[in-house]
Write a protein that binds this DNA or RNA. Structure first.
Lengths: 134, 134
DNA sequence: ATGTGTGCAAATGATTTGCAGGTTG
DNA sequence: CAACCTGCAAATCATTTGCACACAT
């Protein structure tokens, strides 16, 4: 049965309080403040536990190391938008829908992942003011 | 100046002849058949060279190590399919089309990446024969 | 007390780099 | 023969695992 430890509680809180998906190292950094001496191995072990328990979810974008966020914040089926300027990632709740027809014949499609790239609202505004002040 | 070596030629051919993006290890395996003794370091060094030369392009899927494919094949807009069983990656030439409407309002979408997941033809066949022999 | 959890360090797996010797132009 | 290349092994980087000890229940 799963036990309650200072380390696990600290890790849970760090992930919960973050306003964005965190990398294992970022999670460790946050937990160090509460439980000095906590090790990176404990972070990885608990990430796995929390994933299995369905408390957190992994966010994997192409070419980037995995990050983790609370499951309740990640909800149901959704996609991501990454800003080419600020690199931040936003949730996209729209979905193109059924894509099973796209695969080569004979293949079976179970699910899909979509990442949109471009400029977020804020970076568009920043660019506009930069041009204006030029 | 860049020189012509058996190793480099072999690597180029393996990548060119493949019908799908290859991992460094897959490239090495293919090249071993032509140049026994070729090492993984040579594969990585030449991948970097070919990337800089614009001959090949990187394919990065969420949570996966990079794979490489010839630039002329990558230049056509396309997507990827990854088999949940054998983990191999295949090109998908179909595209759902315009996805600009999916992003939050105020965002500008420049491009998108789509990855389909499921079972490839071969793994479906393997599963079928496994069931048959059970 | 009993088994889970933790820290440390060694083990992985992927990729990079230093070095000494081999090959190309 | 000078510069470029290669193979090997050691070095990184991120992540995993073995072990002995600590701790929750």
């Amino acid at each position: 049965m799963e036990r309650t430890t200072r380390q696990r509680e600290a890790l849970r809180n760090v992930i919960e309080d973050a306003q964005r998906p965190l990398s294992p190292q970022e999670i460790l950094d946050g937990a160090q403040a509460v439980v000095p001496g906590i090790g990176i191995a404990t972070v990885y072990r608990n990430i796995k536990l929390l994933l299995d328990a369905g408390e957190i979810e992994v966010v994997t974008l192409p070419g980037e190391n995995p990050r983790y966020e609370p499951a309740h914040r990640a909800h149901h089926h959704h996609h991501h938008f990454q800003c080419d300027a600020c690199r931040r990632v936003f949730d996209v709740h729209e979905c193109p829908g059924d894509l099973k027809g796209l695969a080569p014949k004979g293949f079976r499609v179970h699910r899909h992942e979509l990442t949109l790239y471009g400029l977020c609202k804020e970076c568009i505004a920043l660019k506009r003011s930069a041009v204006a002040s030029a």
